[in-house]
């Protein structure tokens, strides 16, 4: 089909020519059948760049039906792959990275000046010549949101069963082992050995799982801003599930759980820092549970204590503070219960907060997702397609 003359890199225009009848094979190879591991050693989001370079060529030859057909086939194939892998974090992350990269490419090379400010002059030469794909950008943006929601769903389903035992029940501070409120001393140890009982996870297991999610998203070249939003959403879930359990379980409302919880939340903040995720607003989502931990630990006796609690616990509603104080269980016979008059003191303080009416947090609350425009520094004409992808029917132009 093609005279195989080795051309110098500079001769390439960053386009890929294909025959219309090869479109189905192209989409099958690059979308339907691809495994993330096939392209793991190459440029992140390679499928997105290859597809865009094919779109560029169809635009260059002024073939509107070829552009429309490839984009539609790609979008439908991505949707199918996601449906088939709707419990697979790796595949979902891979397609979120590639779909959002394809969307960024359609913007970066649209010819719209707003998207060209960071382009090199070579990249500007590579802008689409004939077609305005703004409507397809909208479809890809909608698709990216759908994929993001699937990613959150898969990740939440994985961590959900770990949260309570990792955050509230496992003993990550060795010196606190065995320090439990009266009557509950052996609860979690007996639970671990119960046949058929719930599985027990440590905080380290939960952090390890978060680390795996993070590593996968990084490997796929997902934009750091999107990765940050995923982490923030998962931290919200961890916070809400933990707080809701505190609000319902007497056995965890104790000084030692407060200590444990403070330690656990600090470990999670540490994980954010170690992974450059502290700016993602994820840490702020832990505020209610951090304050609940402090509430379990502070003195709860005098009017001054009540005042201090109210100015400390700004992320908790009065209803939540009162509930935790009511459930608070002394560690031993020397520690006193919280008195009724102290709780009344808290309840009767002038309300300066706008409290939500419900006691429990919405574990399913989702923050609106944003895909900020992230142009790429890659020069399309330098892109190398590995032979292992079996795309030799594409012709570099």
């Amino acid at each position: 089909r093609q005279v195989t003359v080795q051309r110098k890199e500079k001769d390439f225009e960053g386009m890929l020519e294909y025959h219309k009848e090869d479109e189905a094979l192209l989409v099958k190879t690059l979308v339907t059948d691809i495994r993330p591991s096939t392209v793991s050693a190459t440029v992140p989001c390679l499928p997105a760049y290859i597809l865009f370079m094919c779109i560029r060529h169809a635009d260059y030859i002024n073939d509107d039906s070829k552009v429309e057909s490839l984009l539609t086939a790609t979008i439908n194939a991505v949707k199918k792959v996601l449906k088939k892998n709707n419990e697979d974090f790796e595949m979902t992350s891979f397609w979120l990275a590639n779909t959002s990269r394809l969307l960024h490419c359609l913007k970066q090379y649209s010819g719209d000046e707003a998207f060209m400010t960071q382009n090199t002059s070579k990249q500007n030469e590579h802008c689409l010549k004939n077609f305005d794909l703004a409507e397809y950008r909208q479809v890809l943006s909608d698709l990216s949101i759908q994929i993001y929601q699937q990613l959150i769903k898969v990740a939440e389903a994985t961590i959900q069963p770990m949260i309570v035992s990792a955050m509230l029940e496992s003993e990550s501070i060795p010196s606190l082992a065995g320090v439990k409120p009266m009557g509950y001393r052996h609860r979690s140890s007996s639970m671990d050995t119960d046949a058929g009982g719930p599985a027990s996870y440590t905080l380290q297991a939960l952090i390890r799982q978060l680390g795996q999610f993070h590593a996968v998203m990084q490997e796929h070249g997902l934009d750091p801003e999107i990765t940050g939003q995923v982490v923030r959403q998962l931290f919200h879930c961890i916070n809400a599930v933990t707080l809701n359990n505190l609000l319902l379980r007497k056995d965890v409302c104790s000084w030692s759980t407060g200590m444990q919880l403070r330690y656990n939340t600090s470990q999670m903040e540490e994980w954010l820092r170690a992974n450059n995720l502290y700016q993602s607003k994820a840490a702020a989502t832990l505020e209610p549970v951090i304050q609940a931990a402090q509430l379990l630990q502070v003195k709860k006796k005098t009017t001054q204590d009540a005042e201090a609690i109210c100015s400390l616990c700004t992320a908790l509603s009065t209803q939540q503070i009162v509930k935790i104080l009511n459930l608070y269980t002394p560690l031993n016979e020397f520690e006193e219960r919280v008195t009724v008059s102290f709780i009344r003191n808290i309840q009767n303080r002038p309300q300066q907060r706008s409290d939500p009416p419900q006691l429990l947090m919405d574990t399913k609350h989702t923050f609106p997702v944003l895909f900020p425009y992230t142009p790429s520094a890659l020069s399309l004409e330098t892109l190398h397609i590995p032979a292992s992808l079996c795309l030799d029917f594409l012709n570099r132009v």
Binding site: D64, E68, G111, D132, L133, E135, D142, L143, Q146
Partner: peptide, 30 residues
Amino acid sequence: RPPSRPRILLKAPTLAEMEEMNISEEEESP
């Protein structure tokens, strides 16, 4: 800088419309 000549807007169906078209195509071809 490339000459800025107007590009032709390609109309795209919405994501939901694309899915509908895709489903009916699949139904047609057994």
